[in-house]
């Protein structure tokens, strides 16, 4: 590189306008053995600069880009997770309650997610009713036992008629 160009680069350097590549050119120039006499005073300075960790080109919006990308990735993850959960929940509901529906004031609703509380309430009530119904045969057993204790067949028939 010509000395004239180096002098221009040095001026540019002190104005803060040099690129990384141009700064490397300056460091390379001053690291070789012989430099122009009027530029010798800069040798130590640029040698010191050459030892500093390389600065990165600063982009005004680098940080903002990263923030936006991070937020976008988070949103995509949340949406994908929600969609996956929704699909799983729908499959579970369908496996357990497919065919269920509700009619309210003449309007039919088939959306299982919407009517799930009513389905589960009806099934819970049914379990209680089945429990009550299961106790019923005990009454019939007691009647049967009573009739068996009565020896006389005619009395048995009369009481049976009364019970029914």
């Amino acid at each position: 590189m010509r000395d004239k160009d180096i002098r221009a680069l040095i001026d540019k350097f002190f104005d803060g306008g040099t690129t990384l590549a141009e700064e490397r050119q300056l460091y390379a120039y001053f690291s070789r053995g012989k430099v122009a006499e009027d530029l010798e005073k800069y040798r130590e300075l640029f040698s010191d600069f050459a030892l500093l960790p390389e600065r990165r080109e600063s982009h005004p919006f680098r940080g903002l880009h990263r923030l936006i990308a991070g937020v976008a990735a988070s949103v995509v993850l949340v949406v994908a997770g929600y969609a996956a959960w929704n699909f799983y929940e729908y499959r579970q509901l369908d496996a357990r309650y497919a065919g269920s529906y509700v009619i309210v004031d003449g309007k039919r609703i088939d959306n299982l997610r919407e009517i799930r509380p009513m389905i589960e309430s009806a099934l819970a009530d049914a379990r209680d009713i089945e429990q009550t119904a299961a106790e019923q045969p005990q009454t019939a057993d007691i009647e049967q036992e009573l009739l068996e204790r009565i020896g006389d067949p005619e009395d048995c028939a009369r009481i049976k008629e009364l019970l029914n």
Partner: peptide, 28 residues
């Protein structure tokens, strides 16, 4: 009566989640 006004009708079908076979139907 399930489709008249002022009424609520629930038909709940309980299935075996593995076989999809109907275990119970409850109409309320």
């Amino acid at each position: 009566f399930s489709s008249v006004g002022n009424s609520t009708f629930t038909s709940a079908v309980e299935r075996d989640s593995k076989t999809h076979r109907i275990k119970k139907v409850v109409k309320k």
